[in-house]
């Protein structure tokens, strides 16, 4: 089989570009640890409270060290449970300072959901039986909408919350 000289040039250029992308991605993923979330940790979807992180009293935002936070959330159709505030009302908004490191931990009690803090790189599938977990540094100030971005039923578009990052 014969390749025209220019086709060889083109294929080397194209394959070289693809290889370059893979090297960049691979380096970041394996050496810097920026893999997409995957922890292969399982949980009983009908009894998520058995897991320490998802006990009702442990839901929501918690500062664990200076500038380090953990947020535990239980997703169900059509709600994100961030726990209760001091007045016993469900929390719909969490606030963290800019530059803080936040670990999001979330699982589902029923169907598949999404969890995206829109405008950041926090974007996870949430599946019954699995724990989704992603740690990130909140680099930018603003109000970010948390959306369920996987179809979970007919009120899917009414499943949301807010993350505010302040200066």
């Amino acid at each position: 089989m014969h390749l025209h000289k220019f086709e060889k040039v083109w294929l080397i250029f194209g394959m070289g570009s693809l290889a370059l992308f893979l090297v960049i991605l691979g380096f970041a993923a394996f050496w810097k640890g920026t893999h997409p979330q995957s922890h292969i940790e399982t949980i009983d979807p009908e009894n998520v409270e058995a897991h320490d992180s998802f006990k009702p009293e442990n839901l929501g935002l918690r500062e664990v060290a200076d500038g380090k936070y953990i947020v535990n959330i239980v997703a169900s159709a059509f709600n994100y449970d961030f726990g209760m505030d001091a007045d016993g009302k469900p929390v719909k908004k969490i606030r963290v300072p800019k530059g803080s490191t936040v670990l999001f931990q979330i699982t589902s009690k029923d169907v598949v959901h999404g969890f995206q803090v829109a405008g950041t790189n926090v974007n996870m599938m949430v599946e019954p039986g699995h724990v989704s977990r992603l740690e990130t540094e909140m680099k930018n100030v603003g109000e970010f909408t948390v959306v369920c971005n996987e179809y979970c039923g007919i009120a899917h578009h009414q499943m949301f919350a807010t993350v505010e990052v302040y200066e």
Binding site: H2, K5, F6, E7, W10, F13
Partner: peptide, 16 residues
Amino acid sequence: PSINLKGTLIAVMLLG
């Protein structure tokens, strides 16, 4: 080998 494919090369390179 002798056909002139200069235009093709430029086009695919722009694509790249």
